[in-house]
Nucleic acid binder design. Structure first.
Lengths: 278, 278
DNA sequence: GAACGCAATATTGTCTGACAATACACGTCA
DNA sequence: TGACGTGTATTGTCAGACAATATTGCGTTC
């Protein structure tokens, strides 16, 4: 009764022969992690896995599995343990596992087929610019390299974005930028300052008038998180940086694209220097 | 017996008061879509919703809902119909709905809380650089604007990425680039040519040595999809473009960053021109 | 002995039904 | 009028079952 199966034009990406690592535990040995949990008292649930209290089960699961993948426990091409296995490992229902896996599939970390299982997609498919993936990615290799990569990316993006902002910002967008800049100067704690700093750069991205630049804000947030956590800054450093920010604000306000671009380049060079002398 | 609930430090993002559109149908009226489906004969399932044969139910659902959101049927802040409603609307189980919603949550299109429901996140949170979101986004506004935005983005990214590639490409990466370039020249159909073209640009991104540039390949793919679909190109156009590509390939091969960057700028200018005279 | 076809099988996909956790909404009471 | 407790709607989680599917290995045939 079903109509003829239409021919799929696009050539199917066959999973080919994927490495079998089905029951292989992740590289690190975690044997003593589940001590005498067998026959745990009834009523006590979920003895394993970091259960963050405020978070949902599937959310935590997705983080756990996602982190493992990005960290390299399951290299691309590897077939993951099946859903039942995860379910057992973490003492959660299969539904929760499936929802977690669906989230990772949405980020292109995984793909799956019936009878095959779920496998790790090649790294170039990963959506590294996703907020979560980026966070996982940021924790795994040495932060040094990560920060360098992000910073390099900022060099590519931000000068041009700022130039566009100088050309196209609306009054409202300008107000956001100016306010963030002012709040940076008025901040009394480094944390407060960093927050304002982040808002400043994000506001510029939004003002650039190119929708596709906005999602790159996660990179800036990530960079600042790490900068905040791993660098301490002297007072005159901060004063100098503040002046650089104000120069950017001014040039956007006066709608001078080239000057704005140059000002951002200066700021980034300054940031580079701070990182290097970390 | 549960330990005291730890204080959540990070200030909670309260959903505040979200617009209530729970039972509001999407803007477009679709009333006569479900004709006399009441009491459908047993065994016949899923009369509603585009059921793409090869795709999974949750996948199709995610596409359908995601498209509606990106298209603007449910503006940011809107609370979506609840899971039971979707389940009924599309005649699928709640599990399928939930998995679809989880996928959209992973792309930051949605967020949800018990008792509240799922609401559309503010647009600046959307992960527009996600392959699916981008595809949905590409269909909704007039393509003109979309293509312009993507093209502008390419102007920001590709020259710098190519310069980096010229500095850091490995031999293997160079081989990929060269091969794609050759295949472009040898292509016998426009489709084949476009595929090789895409591969060429993606290979350059990979060769840039910056992991964060790689996911931007989806933009290039998207741009080429649309260029392929909406422009026809004359033969000497193609010859000219081929020479521009070969210039890029050569400069990467000879490791001349500045020349490579300039060559890419030329190619992009040419593409701009093709688009304008579309 | 090799090639082909077919069935067994393992895994994801989907459905159903139930209960828990939660936070808004309302009515009650001081 | 305001504070407080209760009702209730919605997502979150669980459990168990069956369907769909593609690989794997076996058997059959040439």
């Amino acid at each position: 009764m079903r109509p003829n199966r239409p021919v799929v034009l696009d050539s199917f990406r066959k999973p080919a022969f994927l490495k079998r690592m089905r029951d292989a535990k992740p590289n690190k040995e975690k044997s003593p992690k589940k001590p005498a949990a067998a026959e745990r008292p009834a009523g006590v649930r979920r003895p394993d896995a970091a259960r963050i209290p405020g978070a949902s089960v599937h959310g935590s699961l997705a983080s756990e599995i996602g982190l493992r993948i990005v960290r390299g426990d399951y290299p691309p091409g590897t077939i993951l343990p099946n859903e039942a296995k995860w379910s057992e490992t973490f003492s959660v229902s299969r539904s929760a596992v499936r929802e977690a896996i669906k989230m990772l599939m949405a980020k292109s970390l995984l793909a799956s087929r019936p009878k095959i299982g779920s496998w790790v997609e090649p790294k170039e498919r990963w959506n590294l610019l996703d907020r979560d993936v980026l966070a996982w990615y940021a924790t795994s290799p040495d932060r040094e390299v990560f920060l360098k990569t992000v910073q390099e990316f900022r060099h590519i993006i931000e000068p041009e974005a700022t130039a566009f902002a100088a050309m196209r910002r609306t009054g409202e967008q300008m107000a956001e930028i100016s306010q963030a800049c002012r709040e940076m100067g008025a901040a009394t704690s480094l944390q407060e300052r960093t927050r304002a700093d982040t808002r400043f750069h994000l506001a510029i991205l939004r003002a650039s008038g190119n929708d596709l630049l906005v999602p790159l804000g996660v990179l800036i947030e990530s960079a600042f998180d790490h900068l905040f956590a791993y660098t301490t800054r002297a007072v005159d450093d901060l004063n100098h940086a503040q002046k650089l920010h104000e120069a950017i604000e001014k040039n956007i306000r006066l709608q001078r694209p080239d000057a704005a671009r140059a000002a951002v380049r200066k700021l980034l060079a300054n940031t580079d220097h701070v990182i290097k002398s970390r």
